[in-house]
Structure formats: C-alpha cells, structure tokens
Computed example of a mutant assay.
Amino acid sequence: MAEIFESAGITIAYGVVGFIVMAAGFAALDLVTPRKLVEVVWKERNKGASIVLSGQMLGVGLVISQAIRSSEFQEGLLWGLTSTLVYGLAGVLVMTLVFAVVGIVTPGRMGATVMEDVDNRPHPAAWVQGTMYIGTALMVSAALS
C-alpha cells in the first residue's frame, strides 16, 4: 500500500512540474500575441487563437511526457523533477522562437494574423502555427530520447 501512495505522490509532483511548464508556455504565447489570450480565447471565442494555443499546449505536453520518460532512470526524484522542468522550459523556449521566426518570414505580424477570424473562420495560418508547435515539440522530444 505504501508503494501506491509513493507512486501517487511522485505522479502529483511531476504533474505540478508539468503544470508550471504549461503555464510558462501560455505566458510565452501571450507575450508574442497582440492581445491577452484569456480575453481572446475565453471571452471572444476566437478560433484562430484557440487553435494555436491548443497546438502549443499539446506540444508542451509532448515535451513534458518525454522529459519525464528521460528522467525516469536518473538518480532520485529531485533530479528527475529538475530535469523535467529544465527540459520542458527549453521546449517552450524553442517553440516560442519558432513562432517568432515564422512571424518574421511570413507577411504580417504572426500573432495578429493567427487571431484573425473572418466570418467566424480562423485564418489558415492558425492551423499552420498550431501544427508547427506540435512538430517542434516532436523534435525536442526526440532530442530527449
């Protein structure tokens, strides 16, 4: 029975670290978009911003998942949690840089473009950017293997 509670505690600890990294990812995306995501997604129901945010959150989850797997064989819980946090934040940094670079090489300001909903339809760039987050996360995850 003690092993079950110990495993549950470890699961909660990794979940907290994952939540911290997801919150950092949300904050990073909020910085590179022109308006506050809470307003745009939850109050205005902007589909483009929702697509990009969903892609990013899925991407962060993929990176955290692989970071946890990679830390599994490390020495001690603290080491595993720390490495998961650092690798997760590195993934957020890389994904944010990709967003910024794509914004530079494409017409218009990417953050504004992905939030354009015309006739209640998201801009196609939102799908591209959301998918780029997932692709970037897969690459970062592969580096952790």
Rank of each mutant, 00 (worst) to 15 (best):
M95T: 12
A90W: 11
L62E: 04
V128E: 10
D119I: 04
I12E: 01
T11A: 12
M57A: 09
W127N: 12
N46S: 04
M115L: 04
V86G: 01
V105Y: 09
Q74I: 05
I104L: 12
T33R: 11
T96A: 07
M1G: 15
M1K: 12
V63E: 11
G103W: 06
L144H: 06
V94G: 08
A100T: 14
E39D: 14
A28W: 04
M57I: 07
L144P: 06
Y133E: 13
G61K: 00
Y87R: 15
I134P: 09
T84P: 08
L31G: 12
K36Q: 10
G61A: 00
I104W: 11
G111D: 07
G15C: 07
L97A: 14
G9C: 04
S145K: 07
L58S: 12
V52S: 01
R35W: 09
V98Q: 06
G9W: 02
A23Q: 14
V63W: 03
I10V: 10
S145T: 13
D117A: 00
I4T: 13
S70Q: 09
S141D: 04
S141V: 08
L78W: 09
W42E: 08
L77R: 00
F5C: 05
L58F: 13
F73L: 10
A24T: 12
R69P: 03
A28R: 10
E116K: 09
I134A: 08
V140L: 05
M139D: 02
L53V: 05
T136G: 02
R121M: 09
L81N: 02
L97M: 06
G61W: 00
G48D: 09
T131L: 06
W127Q: 11
A90I: 15
T106Q: 02
D117N: 00
H123S: 05
V102K: 04
S145E: 08
P34T: 09
W79R: 10
E116H: 05
G135I: 06
P124G: 03
I134Q: 11
G61F: 02
V118T: 15
S145C: 01
F5T: 15
A112V: 02
L58N: 09
V92C: 03
A125V: 09
T96S: 11
A100E: 15
N120W: 04
G9S: 08
R109Y: 08
M1C: 07
S65P: 02
R121K: 14
A126S: 15
G108C: 04
M110N: 15
A2F: 08
I68P: 01
N120K: 15
F5N: 13
V140M: 05
A90S: 13
G76P: 13
G61D: 02
V16W: 01
P107F: 00
I64T: 00
